[in-house]
């Protein structure tokens, strides 16, 4: 594992911790898209089916379990916690995420490493992760004002993707036979979706003003 990959994983972990912190400290999930959170929970459940079949490292296994548990806990909290669920911006979170699900699954059936149950679900999880942030970005754009923790949550998610790209570039030059086009192309698409957000995040950071997205 190289430093970029590790930094990416830590950014991913940090984003989840920031989100948990926001929900617990403020007892509110305003500005957070339940649809995006549901998609992420599904991404991890579909991808880590290999927990039962392949062992890579203790690090990998622990991280997989952390991602599964934390993402399902966030969804549970937003849906079931008496206080938290009242702050959910349901009327703003209207992105039709079932289309993303259907399209990702159809693509996974067509483009995969191997036509097996596990590989199809792996490809599905990669495609779904690439677009899972869309409901969240749409929700932020609709609400206009973004609170600090929500802004940081999306920032760390984007940073995680950026480090994964550096990791792939590094692996491409240091490893023989490094070719994983499905993950790399999907990863590029996923990172590109954050470009707009990063631009406004940078502007607000530079001017030391509250993050505001244009309508």
């Amino acid at each position: 594992m190289n430093i970029f990959r590790f930094a990416g994983d830590m950014m991913h972990l940090t984003s989840i911790l920031v989100l948990l912190l926001k929900i617990y400290a403020t007892k509110s999930c305003s500005g957070i898209s339940l649809k995006t959170q549901e998609l992420y929970a599904l991404v991890f459940l579909a991808r880590y089916l290999d927990l039962f079949t392949d062992f890579i490292s203790v690090y990998n296994t622990i991280m997989k379990l952390v991602f599964i548990v934390s993402s399902t806990a966030i969804v549970w909290c937003m849906k079931r916690d008496r206080v938290v669920r009242r702050s959910y911006d349901k009327q703003l979170d209207t992105f039709r995420h079932y289309f993303l699900l259907a399209a990702s699954f159809a693509l996974a059936l067509l483009v995969n490493e191997k036509f097996t149950f596990q590989e199809i679900f792996w490809a599905f999880s990669i495609y779904l992760e690439a677009v899972a942030i869309l409901p969240q970005l749409v929700l932020l754009q609709r609400s206009g004002n973004v609170d600090n923790l929500t802004g940081q949550y999306v920032f760390f998610l984007g940073a995680y993707r950026a480090f994964y790209i550096l990791n792939w570039i590094y692996r491409y030059f240091t490893e023989t036979h490094f070719s994983r086009w499905i993950a790399c192309i999907s990863g590029l698409v996923q990172t590109a979706l954050y470009a707009d957000f990063f631009y406004y995040y940078y502007i607000s950071w530079k001017n030391n003003t509250k993050l505001k997205l244009p309508a």
Binding site: R5, H12, D54, I56, E113, Y164, H177, A183
Partner: peptide, 10 residues
């Protein structure tokens, strides 16, 4: 795909 650790990323 023959690589045993093909899916070694998270």
């Amino acid at each position: 795909v023959s690589d045993r650790n093909y899916h070694d990323e998270l």
